[in-house]
Design a protein around this nucleic acid. Structure first.
Length: 303
DNA sequence: CTCCGCTCCTGCCGGC
DNA sequence: TGCCGGCAGGAGCGGA
């Protein structure tokens, strides 16, 4: 589920705990998530210090002090929670800790698959727990030198919040594409980090139909204006979502330690049958299926 | 090459 | 109340 803003929010939440922390021990509660963990995964992490926590597309990237990189993806249902201070201290039993009394509603420890036991400069003991009911997430280790050429990384498209992103970049990657705009925006090889929700939201904001050919952003009458509107919408939708995540982060970390999900009402996503929220539009939000996924849009104002 | 549909897994929700 | 089908925020793969 987590798209770029959620992953970025997780990064900002985990960063202060993880950066500079020594990994004292790693508990693996099962041999695989979506993919098997690498051989000796826990052993290779033990004794390492995390140098920095970054993000590329929807991947969390933890740089370690031995020039390896821990790559983590949350899939559809992955989340982390932080047990710091007293909740993390002492003992080897991780199924019953004070922190678990504050589990978010509906969460259970049944899907806690990985526990990182940390020694942090600031707090002493801390644990970071990875929970993932559907197990579409995964973790792997990559040599820093081979990182950019790694199959997971090498084909990832442009970062929508980076300096290189804009109308020109959109036009470049969409040129000649006959695929629906919705599908092209979801393609991680073209643009990194967008998922179903924020694609719907960005298209609504830009007043563009999800069904038009992606190439019409790059060429034809009005293409430049469409590209400008779409680029601006993508940026603003993501930035606002990150800001919203940041504001929920404080509450969340204090209350339960959970990171990885924040829910707020969207303008068009999951609003089938409701009135379009654009002032003066008067349309109704519809739902259609594209590439097997739900698209929510307003046919009245999105052209 | 491009595009589409299928697939992995569990949880939840609505309908009967 | 309980069961069942459908759907869910991702993305790699095979096949057309």
């Amino acid at each position: 589920m987590p798209e770029l803003p959620e992953v970025e929010t997780v990064r900002r939440g985990l960063g202060p705990i993880l950066e500079g922390a020594l990994i004292e021990r790693v508990e693996l509660r099962r041999p695989n998530l979506r993919f098997p963990f690498p051989d000796d995964f826990a052993a290779r992490l033990t004794g390492r210090t995390v140098v920095a926590l970054g993000r590329r597309a929807k991947y969390l990237i933890a740089d370690l002090d031995d020039s390896t990189v821990l790559v983590m993806h949350l899939g559809m249902s992955g989340s982390f929670r932080i047990l710091a201070g007293a909740a993390a201290g002492g003992g080897t039993d991780t199924t019953e800790t004070p922190g678990d009394f504050h589990l978010p509603r509906g969460k259970s420890t049944a899907h806690d698959h990985v526990v990182f036991h940390l020694r942090t400069p600031a707090d002493g003991c801390a644990r970071i727990v990875y929970n993932d009911p559907r197990r579409f997430g995964f973790m792997t280790l990559v040599e820093r030198a081979a990182f950019d050429a790694h199959p997971l990384m090498r084909d990832i498209g442009i970062e929508p919040l980076g300096n290189l992103f804009g109308a020109g970049a959109l036009a470049e990657v969409f040129a000649g594409k006959t695929a629906p705009l919705k599908a092209a925006l979801l393609d991680q090889k073209l643009i990194a980090g967008l998922g179903n929700i924020y694609v719907c939201e960005a298209l609504w904001r830009a007043e563009l139909s999800p069904t038009r050919a992606a190439g019409t952003i790059a060429a034809g009458r009005g293409a430049r204006a469409r590209a400008e509107a779409l680029a601006a919408s993508i940026r603003s939708v993501l930035q606002e979502a990150i800001a919203a995540g940041g504001s929920t982060l404080r509450d969340h970390v204090q209350a339960s330690g959970e990171l990885g999900y924040f829910q707020h009402r969207f303008n068009v996503y999951d609003r089938e049958g409701e009135a379009c929220l654009r002032p003066g539009c008067g349309g109704v939000v519809e739902r259609l299926t594209q590439s097997g996924r739900s698209t929510f849009w307003c046919p009245t104002c999105q052209k």
